[in-house]
């Protein structure tokens, strides 16, 4: 296709968009709603991933040892556990440290502090413990079963496991993602339908001109092109409007969200989603929707 033909197709597509301003506005508005939902879903996905990662980072499994277990035994166990590839870190908390931690935690309760201080070091009632972190959430089961096995079990008093917090968080975020996906699908479908009708009306309004085009030997792409261009204009206008609405919102909400999710501010700021990436994603998803609907209309209603 020659550059001049291409520019004429673009021009005609823009004319289609401009001439039916009200209809185009409706189609663009629908596009904005859908792109808004898609982008919000994206932002939500990034946020939940970040907060999940931050929570996962804080989760560990604590192994408390019997008071009778000697430090030497515990250190031996530590060396064995350290060799397991799934283990990210293992921290040994001796009874003394555990007592200090307890005192620090309850420093405003003199009665408790006093009762703890009654014991000397050899009578310290706080057990020694490990705080173990693993690489993957699934690895916790391996570690726990190891300490429940006959080799270590005699030394272990108690195992506390915070995995259920992560499980719950996972379930909630998955639920939100599914609802978001469902909404995206529904609104994408509505957008395709609205654009379908808008372009169909344009074809109807321009039927005489299309007939003339056919008569004077316009090529298929010359006749069909402008309607696909028209659809792409809905996508572009929709993407720009969505970005203009969404970005200030992200900007305003960021400090609040980062406070709520207890995420470090710098992580939130980058989010992996800068303005241009977001705009590009909106344009791409908008253009995909636009091209799908205009291709269907053109195939169905434009006979060459």
């Amino acid at each position: 296709m020659s550059p001049i033909t291409f520019s004429r197709i673009l021009n005609n597509g823009f004319l289609n968009y401009k001439r039916n301003f009200l209809l185009s506005a409706a189609a663009t508005a629908m596009m904005v709603v859908t792109l808004f939902i898609i982008s919000s879903l994206l932002v939500l996905n990034v946020l939940t991933n970040l907060s999940l990662a931050s929570v996962k980072d804080k989760v560990d499994v604590s192994i408390y040892f019997n008071l009778g277990a000697s430090e030497q035994t515990i250190r031996q166990i530590q060396r064995q556990v350290e060799l397991i590839p799934a283990v990210k870190s293992i921290a040994y908390i001796p009874p003394v440290t555990a007592r200090e931690k307890f005192k620090e935690l309850h420093k405003d309760e003199p009665l408790l502090i006093e009762s703890v201080e009654q014991f000397n070091d050899s009578e310290n009632p706080f057990p020694a413990s490990f705080a173990i972190r693993v690489n993957e959430l699934g690895d916790y089961a391996t570690v726990i079963s190891l300490f429940q096995g006959e080799k270590f079990e005699p030394f272990v008093k108690k195992i506390t496991d915070k995995r259920d917090i992560v499980d719950r968080l996972n379930r909630i975020t998955n639920g939100i993602k599914n609802i978001g996906l469902g909404l995206t699908l529904i609104f994408s479908l509505i957008t395709i339908l609205v654009m379908f009708n808008t372009i169909r009306l344009t074809i109807y309004n321009r039927r005489e001109e299309i007939e003339i085009m056919r008569l004077v030997g316009a090529s298929n792409s010359y006749i069909k092109g402008p309607f696909i261009v028209e659809g792409i204009f809905y996508a572009l206008a929709g993407a720009v409007i969505t970005a203009a609405l969404l970005y200030p919102m992200i900007f305003i909400l960021t400090p609040k969200i980062s406070g709520f999710l207890q995420l470090p501010a710098d992580q939130i700021n980058t989010w992996g989603l800068n303005f241009w990436v977001l705009l590009a994603l909106q344009i791409i998803s908008g253009v995909i929707l636009a091209v799908i609907s205009s291709l269907i209309v053109v195939k169905k209603y434009l006979k060459i």
């Binding site: 005489e208 007939e211 003339i212 030997g217 090529s219 010359y222």
Partner: peptide, 22 residues
């Protein structure tokens, strides 16, 4: 083919009773 049809139509001039001007 429908791709080549426009080239055929460019060899043919057509006018109608209802004129069909833009």
């Amino acid at each position: 083919s429908s791709k080549d049809l426009p080239y055929l139509r460019r060899k043919i001039g057509v006018v109608f009773q209802d004129i069909k001007l833009i």
